[in-house]
Simulated assay, not measured.
Amino acid sequence: MKRIALVVMAGFLAIGSVPAYAADTGGKDECLLISKNCKNEVDSIQQKIKKLQVEIKKGNKVYTTDELKKLHSKLQEANQVLEDLNKPGH
């Protein structure tokens, strides 16, 4: 049951993790930030973590302080899901 819950949670995290293709976002990945302008493709947890790290590195040149906090929070959440999925017994 716990494994099913983790898989479902990973699925929800992955739903909003595909790249954004909007033309006028100022370099922001709106899909990662607010699940807007997403295609029907889904990234793995590892791909989402990498994309979040890349976006966070853009810093205040692209994102506001609040947006960066949101990205950091999503990164922590994705890392926790990956850690939970990699625990022995799953």
Rank of each mutant, 00 (worst) to 15 (best):
V7L: 11
V8K: 11
M9W: 12
M9I: 15
A10C: 10
A10H: 08
A10P: 02
G11E: 15
G11Y: 14
F12W: 15
A14W: 11
A14G: 08
A14P: 11
I15E: 14
G16L: 04
G16Q: 04
V18T: 13
P19N: 06
P19S: 04
A20F: 14
A20Y: 10
Y21Q: 14
A22D: 01
A22G: 03
A22N: 02
A23D: 15
A23I: 15
A23E: 15
A23G: 13
A23M: 15
G26Y: 10
G27A: 14
K28A: 02
K28C: 06
K28R: 13
D29T: 00
D29K: 02
D29H: 01
C31W: 00
L32S: 00
L33M: 00
L33V: 01
L33N: 00
I34S: 07
I34K: 13
I34G: 04
I34D: 05
I34F: 09
K36F: 07
N37A: 04
N37P: 07
N37F: 12
C38D: 02
C38N: 02
C38L: 03
K39P: 09
K39D: 15
K39C: 14
K39Y: 14
N40F: 13
N40Y: 13
N40M: 14
E41V: 03
D43C: 09
D43L: 05
D43P: 10
S44M: 08
S44K: 04
I45H: 01
Q46D: 12
Q46P: 05
Q46C: 07
Q46M: 09
Q47D: 07
Q47V: 03
K48C: 04
K48G: 02
I49M: 06
I49N: 03
I49F: 05
K50L: 10
K50E: 09
L52H: 03
Q53R: 14
Q53A: 12
V54P: 07
E55P: 00
E55H: 04
E55G: 00
I56L: 03
K58G: 07
K58Q: 08
